[in-house]
Write a protein that binds this DNA or RNA. Sequence first.
RNA 1: GGCCCCAUCGUCUAGUCAGGUCCAGGACGCCAGGUUUUCAUCCUGGAAACCGGGGUUCGAAUCCCCGUGGGGUCACCA
Length: 564
Amino acid sequence: MPAASPPAVTRFAPSPTGHLHIGGARTALFNWALARRLGGHFLLRIEDTDRARDAGPESVVGILRGLEWLGIDWDEGPAPDLSADRDPRGVGPFRQSERRALYDDAARRLLEADLAYHAFETPDELAAMRDLAKREKRPFRYDRAALRIPRAERFARAESEPHVVRFRAPEEEVVVRDEVLGEVRLAPGEVDDFVIVKADGFPTYHLAVVVDDEAMGVTHVVRGQEHLINTPRHVLLQRALGCRTPIYAHLPLIVSPSGAKMSKRDKDRTVRRACRDAGLAEPPPGTVEPAVFARWLADKNRQMEQGALARLAAALGVTLPEIDVEDFRAAGYLPRVVANYIALLGFSPGGDVEKFDLAFLAERFDLARIGKTGARFDYKKLLAFNTDAIAAMSDEDFAERWRAWCLEFAPEVVRAAGAEAGVSPTWRVLAAALRPRSKTFADAARGAGFLVTPDDEIAYDRKAVDKALLKNDGEGLAVLRDLRRTLAGLTDWSAPGVGAALGAFAEGRGVGLGKVAQPLRVALTGSTVSPPIDATAALLGRDRCLARIDRCLAAVDRGRFDGS
RNA sequence: GGCCCCAUCGUCUAGUCAGGUCCAGGACGCCAGGUUUUCAUCCUGGAAACCGGGGUUCGAAUCCCCGUGGGGUCACCA
């Protein structure tokens, strides 16, 4: 029989913000990988002790979706569909708001043992004390004023007055052993009497995390380095409560290309800069309230609501940086590529290995191979990885996955290729033509634009027309006119059929294929860029091709290149 | 500012724990050629780093100290 308790338990403990931040995704991935590697359990716990910011049960869905998309599964925690929790060991529930009794009990024990005490300062009073400390340039630390109130009186007042509970931090050196950083020491007195129970009766993060990690048997705590400074507090609390201290590993931060910790604010930064560059004094109509816009533009620390920000970005023609897992999904990246890339941020399997999958991580992940230095998120490298992955896909696989993506993010492409009911022959041709030249699904969807645009709405790129049609006394134009006649008599409109016809045509004129393909390409798509010309023509079909050629010829004759 | 952490090409990193095989390897990016019906690929080549200063040692990217630089954190958020 196997041992009664699993050898290792790791956890990912997000607060329910609704979105899975890319940094959180990496934390989850490493915790998952460690549990798999150790043959233990990976659990998910929702840290929703902040009533003020509680966004409801739905806000965990976005996080669960993000994890599922990446291919990260969990042994314990909320079910993906939010039905009954997965709880094989009976350590749930997994939402901290449902575990109040545990925290209340821990706080009561600390209070009774005099290891914690009631304090009655209001938030305003504390803020004033903090301001004063700042003005006098000394570090603020709660002065234990409440401890001057006799103990019995504190308990009595707590019955009727608003209060918090503070941990009575012992003045001793704290040494934290960290698998990544080694030993981290904090001098006696550096940990202050932090709050463990808020005025609304809910525990703070510090109390909840210590109580739950103990109750859930968590053996390894792998989290971002921004938590490093919290760890001494947790260790002290563990001692006071008689809890075990888990093995800690603090991950290096992921920073944005600008160098600061990667956050949603990067989106605001990007759009704000674009507004300034464009000299925008008022928001474009239909984007956001002018008053909100003005306040946001003036205050670089202010964040705009996501929807409004997206509309504003679209109006300005700027692309928002991807920050949440959902952003990467929408941008058309492959989940395994995103997982692979973020695993490389702060971790390396050693040697020259850098392309790998989740199975590899589950087998080879090792805390000893985590670096200490902050890692800059390199969008270009991610894109290169995604390009490689798409290039390595089979046409069939790409056709199916790309269709699924388009269904959600670019339905017009699916309609244009008549693939509403499933992968159609046309879709197969389109996907095969686009795959080798696509870096992302979104990139491929853009490439399908020529098929989506109605025949009579093609806009002709001025430079393309000059180069492919008008240059050398209308050389290209002449080719196009002759070509139209040839094409009109062509019966085989498959890509090979068109290709053969074009090849013969070019040979007959004694010119390279380029001299034929480019004029045709401009006529069919309005630009010099499209999938291979034979596929482009085949996809459009005979009638639409001839119509587009005629329209192009007429437009050039009239000198109207915008298609009007 | 206090405290804490960190420091190899522009970026992610291998090498550091067990000092010599490293005039430092790979990847992304960049530059120069080449292939290609457009685009995107692809191929070949190239430039590019051990933060500075002291030690220890026969020998240091690797160990120690100082400096400098960067980051994190200082909530009744997590």
